[in-house]
Amino acid sequence: MIKLRNIDRYIDKRLQRNFILKGIDLDIAEGDFISIMGPSGAGKSTLLNIIGFLDDANEGEYYFLDEPVHGLNEKQKSEYHRSYIGFVFQAYHLIDELTVYENIEMPLLYRKVKGSQRKSMVADMLDRFNIVAKKDLFPNQLSGGQQQLVGVARALIGSPKLILADEPTGNLHSDQSKEIMETFKKLNKEDGVTIIQVTHSDEMASYGDRIINLQDGAVTENNPYEEE
């Protein structure tokens, strides 16, 4: 599904070129559950952003579903965001002025889902994450774990085929973290959703099938578990 070839991402500073990512080759198949690990500043978020079309590589080729990404226009990228890719962020990034219900509903609005259908879909999500009682609260009235549940619910409501999660459990207790990981695992196994997550925790990484280690912008170790 995802094919990265010799991807470079760099920042030019006066005479110096700072590489954030250098020579990344990566293949990810549909149904994979991948954990990207590595020290802070290694370029994990940048890689995830490139995969999710939020950032562009400076060099190299990127094929998404066998289509060259550099050939996609704004609108096509947005179409993928609407119907194919779901994002989860470490800082949740919920919209402060919208309630839990409205935050979850938002992707459906951009997908122009009908009112009644929207209602039932949001209700399902609230149910699934046990946050029905919180639906009229605003994000700042929730704990971090609850906010991230809303973030996940928002990512899942569009039934994406690919979930990109950047340290989704970074700010959460282990119980909450596990809950979210279980959800991912279930989605991956039952619905065949492809998941790429960034994490610092080995425990969280172990929910995935494969680990990619990133160091100074380069892949150092691909899939350590399989080698063991």
Partner: peptide, 14 residues
């Protein structure tokens, strides 16, 4: 700004 970023992530056109 966060709202703008999120709306775009969720598929909003510019």
């Amino acid at each position: 700004s966060r709202e703008v970023g999120m709306r775009k992530v969720l598929g909003g056109y510019r």
